[in-house]
Design a protein around this nucleic acid. Structure first.
Length: 573
RNA sequence: CGGCGAUUAGCGCAGCUUGGUAGCGCACUUGGUUUGGGUCCAAGGGGUCGCAGGUUCAAAUCCUGCAUCGCCGACCA
C-alpha cells in the first residue's frame, strides 16, 4: 500500500475527550473515529488490526473443534421472553419495533438465538456434542460508554456455544476452550491471566474470565502468592479469621460526633482508627409473600469494603442489592446514615467474618451525631449472623490455603461459562437420548471481546512515540520510508523496486510515498506502530545500503541492497 | 440514575467577567524556501459561536429551557 493512495489519518494532537492511552492512540494513529457516544467507525489502520485479531481467534476456535456460523443482530422479542431475559436484562438490551410494531432486540449476546436454532435442528444425541461460534457485532446500550472501543455500545465479539448430553462432556469442551483461549492470548503476545469469575447476567455455574493486565483495567483481580489461584475481586473469597474474638475489656460508652459522617471523619476528627470501627450499611431485604421489603443491616470493618455481589446472594437480601433510602432508614432506625451502628437494631444484622472477631470497637449509636465506643458482640449485640460480605484486600490469606493475596487491575477480554441447562430448560431444547427419551441439553458459552482486545493490546504495548504492535497485530508488517524521494533519481527507482519485491515476497508493506519531510514520516510510522522500517536515503545509497529500524527493540542496522528482501523476510517472520 | 463540567473552523484552544460586525496554533490550498527526526516566509479557503426561546438599539458574551459530549459517583453509613 502507498500512503498516497491510503488514508493514514494520523493526528498530531490528542482529541480532548480521550482519557486512556489506548483510546488516544487509536484516534491519533488513524484507527477509529467517534460517530456518537460509544459508537465508532473503524478506519483502515484499525480494521486491519481488528481483522488480525479475528483471524487468530478464528484459527484457534477451528482448532478447538468449534464450527463457525453467523446469526442475526436483530432478534425477535418472544425468544427473549421465553428465556426470561426480556425483563431480566434491563435497559442494556436495546429494543426496537419494526414497521408492524412488533418488538425486537438488538443482540447483546446470542444464547436465545443459538438455542432456538439447535432445538429445531438437532434431534439426536448422536449429533452431540456440538460447538458453534460466530464473530459478529454485538449491541449493548451501556449506562456509561467510555474509553473508546473498550466499553462501546457496538462492538465485535466472538461468541461460541456448546451443547452436550452430560456435565462431563461439557466439562471436557470447557477445558478445551479454556486452552484455546490461552492459545489466543499467547499468540497475541499479551500478558493475561485466567481468573475465577462470577456468571453475572449470562447465568450458569462454573466460569472463568480472561484478563489482560493493565493499570487502566476496570476490574480488580486477586492473585495468590502461593499458587495459581486468581479470581475477580467480586468473586474472591475472604477467608474467615481463625482467631477467637477477644473478651470485652471496655464499657459501652457514647461520645458526641456531630461532625463525623464517615469513617474518615471518625479517624481525622476523633482519632478512631478505621480498623477499630465498623461501617453499618442498610439495604433492602428480600421481598416477603406480600412483596414488601424490610431492611437489613450489613456490618463490615471500617477499613473494609462491602462486596455487593456476595451480599445480594444472601437469602435475607434482595437481589440486585439496593441500599435503603435515607427516608426509610430514618423511619426504621431513627437516625441518619453517618450515625448508624449494630447496637439495638431491630432489623436482621449480618456481620462480616472479619468484623465479627472485633472487640471494643466504635460504631454509630443510631442517634444522630452520637457514636458508641467499647462495643462488643455477644454483650452489646446479641442477634446477628456472620457471612463473607467484603472485598478481599492486599495481604489477605489466599482461599487456596497457600500464600497471601495481591491485587492487580485487569481488562476483561474473555469470559467462559458452564451454563448447564439454564437456557435449554427455559426454551425446552432437548434431544432424543440413547434411552429413547427426550433429554434437555447441557450448554456452555464462550466469549472473546475482539474489538476490546485491540485496545487492551495498545494499553500493554506503547511508548511516548506511539503504538508498538506485536508483529501478529500490526496493521502493516513493514514501512518503506524514502528520504526526499522527489529530489532524487535513484531513490524512487530503488524504493519502487524494493517495494514490489517485498510485496512479491508476501510482506504487507506500507510505502510512504508522500512528499513529506523525513521527521513527519518517521513520527507517523512510529505512531501507527509498524514494527519494521526501511529508510532509503542518498547517504547510505552511496555504499549500496539502506537502513533498517525495529520499532520494538529500537535497533538500527545498515543492510546491503542485494540482501534486503532475504533479510527482511527473516525479520518479519 | 445522581453530581460536576464542556459545547466557538477538521483538531487543540482563546474571546464571555465589563454585550458593539469572531480570533490563535495545528491541519488544508497556492507560491517560494528548506530537506536524515513534526523547516521557514508569504498569500488564501473554511465558522447559522450546539439548538430553541427571552432581555437589549445590539448577544459567542446576560437569562431560561433543551440536546449532545465528557468526567466523577452509584461504597452511603
Amino acid at each position: 500500500m502507498r500512503t498516497s493512495e491510503y488514508i493514514l489519518a494520523t493526528l498530531k494532537e490528542t482529541p480532548s475527550d480521550a482519557e486512556i492511552i489506548s483510546h488516544q492512540l487509536m484516534l491519533r494513529a488513524g484507527m477509529i473515529r467517534k460517530l456518537a457516544s460509544g459508537l465508532y467507525t473503524w478506519l483502515p489502520n484499525g480494521l486491519k488490526v481488528l481483522r488480525k485479531v479475528e483471524s487468530i481467534v478464528r484459527e484457534e476456535m477451528n482448532k478447538a473443534g468449534a464450527i463457525e456460523m453467523l446469526m442475526p443482530i436483530i432478534q425477535p422479542a418472544d425468544l427473549w421472553q421465553e428465556s426470561g431475559r426480556w425483563e431480566q436484562f434491563g435497559p442494556e438490551l436495546l429494543r426496537i419495533n419494526d414497521r408492524h410494531n412488533r418488538p425486537f432486540a438488538l443482540g447483546p449476546t446470542h444464547e436465545e438465538v443459538i438455542t432456538e436454532f439447535v432445538r429445531k435442528e438437532i434431534n439426536s444425541y448422536k449429533q452431540l456434542p456440538l460447538n458453534l461460534y460466530q464473530i459478529q457485532t454485538k449491541v449493548r446500550d451501556e449506562v456509561r460508554p467510555r474509553f473508546g472501543v473498550m466499553r462501546a455500545r457496538e462492538f465485535t465479539m466472538k461468541d461460541a456455544y456448546s451443547f452436550h448430553l452430560s456435565e462431563e462432556c461439557l466439562d471436557n469442551t470447557y477445558k478445551k476452550m479454556h486452552q484455546a483461549y490461552c492459545n489466543v492470548f499467547e499468540r497475541l503476545g499479551l500478558d493475561y491471566r485466567p481468573v475465577i469469575a462470577d456468571t453475572g447476567s449470562i447465568g450458569g455455574s462454573v466460569s472463568h474470565e480472561f484478563h489482560v493486565l493493565a493499570e487502566s483495567g476496570e476490574d480488580a483481580i486477586a492473585f495468590s502468592s502461593g499458587s495459581d489461584y486468581a479470581a475477580n475481586i467480586e468473586k474472591a473469597e475472604a477467608v474467615a479469621p481463625s482467631i477467637e474474638r477477644p473478651a470485652p475489656s471496655k464499657e459501652l460508652n457514647t461520645f458526641d460526633t456531630p461532625d463525623a459522617k464517615t469513617i474518615d471523619d471518625l479517624k481525622t476528627k476523633h482519632g478512631v482508627k478505621a480498623h477499630r470501627s465498623v461501617k453499618t450499611l442498610i439495604a433492602y431485604g428480600a421481598p416477603d409473600e406480600n412483596e414488601k421489603r424490610g431492611l437489613v443491616a450489613l456490618i463490615v470493618r471500617g477499613d473494609h469494603e462491602l462486596n455487593e455481589l456476595k451480599a445480594e446472594k444472601l437469602d435475607l437480601l434482595d437481589s440486585p442489592l439496593e441500599f435503603a433510602s435515607e427516608d426509610d432508614i430514618v423511619k426504621a432506625i431513627g437516625a441518619k446514615p453517618g450515625s448508624l451502628g449494630p447496637v439495638g437494631l431491630d432489623i436482621p444484622v449480618i456481620v462480616d467474618h472479619s468484623a465479627s472477631v472485633m472487640a471494643d470497637f466504635v460504631a454509630g449509636a443510631n442517634k444522630d451525631g452520637v457514636h458508641y465506643s467499647g462495643i462488643n458482640f455477644g454483650r452489646d449485640v446479641t442477634e446477628f449472623t456472620t457471612a463473607d460480605i467484603r472485598n478481599v484486600v492486599e495481604g489477605d490469606p489466599s482461599p487456596c490455603g497457600n500464600g497471601t493475596l495481591s491485587i492487580k487491575r485487569g481488562i476483561e477480554v474473555g469470559h467462559i461459562f458452564q451454563l448447564g441447562t439454564k437456557y435449554s430448560e427455559a426454551m425446552n431444547a432437548g434431544v432424543l437420548a440413547e434411552t429413547g427419551k427426550n433429554q434437555i441439553m447441557t450448554m456452555g458459552c464462550y466469549g472473546i471481546g475482539v474489538s476490546r482486545i485491540v485496545a487492551a493490546a495498545i494499553e500493554q504495548n506503547h511508548d511516548k512515540f506511539g503504538i508498538k504492535w506485536p508483529t501478529a497485530l500490526a496493521p502493516f508488517e513493514l514501512a518503506i520510508v524514502p528520504m526526499n524521494m522527489h529530489k532524487s533519481h535513484r531513490i524512487p527507482e530503488i524504493a519502487e523496486r524494493i517495494y514490489s519485491e517485498l510485496q512479491a515476497a508476501g510482506i504487507d508493506v506500507l510505502f510512504d510515498d508522500r512528499k513529506e519531510r523525513p521527521g513527519v514520516m518517521f513520527n507517523d510510522m512510529e505512531l501507527v506502530g509498524i514494527p519494521h522500517t526501511l529508510v532509503i536515503g542518498e547517504r547510505n545509497l552511496d555504499n549500496n545500503q539502506v537502513e533498517y529500524k525495529n520499532r520494538i527493540t529500537g535497533d538500527k542496522e545498515l543492510i546491503d541492497l542485494d540482501e534486503v528482501v532475504a533479510l527482511l523476510k527473516q525479520k518479519v517472520k
